[in-house]
Amino acid sequence: QVNQQQLQQLMDMGFTREHAMEALLNTSTMEQATEYLLTHP
C-alpha cells in the first residue's frame, strides 16, 4: 500500500502512476522515491 499523497506528488512531478507506485513500494522516503525514479527511467 502506498501513501496516496506521496503518489500524487510524484505524479504532479510528471511521473506516471505506475512508475511512481513502483518507486514508493521500493523505497521508504519521498527523497528515495524521487531518486529511484530519476535513476530508473
Rank of each mutant, 00 (worst) to 15 (best):
F15C: 12
T34S: 10
L38Q: 15
Q6V: 07
L7S: 03
A20E: 03
T39P: 13
E35W: 14
M21A: 14
L24G: 02
A33H: 01
Q6G: 06
P41S: 11
A20C: 08
Q32A: 12
Q1G: 12
F15G: 10
E18G: 11
G14R: 04
H40N: 12
E35Q: 13
L10I: 10
E31W: 01
E31K: 14
H19F: 09
N3K: 05
L7N: 00
M21N: 07
M21S: 14
E18N: 04
H40T: 10
T29E: 08
L37A: 14
P41I: 15
Q32S: 10
T39H: 11
E22K: 07
T29W: 00
Q32F: 03
H19R: 11
E35D: 08
Q32T: 08
T39I: 04
T34M: 03
D12F: 04
Q1Y: 01
F15A: 15
Y36E: 09
T39L: 06
L10P: 01
P41T: 11
D12L: 08
Q4L: 10
T16N: 12
E35H: 09
M21Q: 15
Q32V: 03
H19S: 14
G14Y: 00
S28N: 12
Q1V: 03
S28L: 05
L38G: 14
D12G: 13
E22A: 10
T34D: 06
L7R: 06
M30W: 08
L10H: 02
Q5R: 06
H19D: 12
E18Y: 02
Q5M: 06
M13D: 03
M13R: 15
A20N: 00
M13F: 02
L24H: 09
L37R: 08
T16P: 08
E35G: 09
E22G: 10
S28H: 14
G14T: 01
L38V: 13
A23R: 01
E18L: 06
M13I: 05
M13W: 03
Q32E: 06
D12N: 15
L24P: 02
E22S: 11
T29M: 04
P41V: 11
A33V: 01
G14N: 15
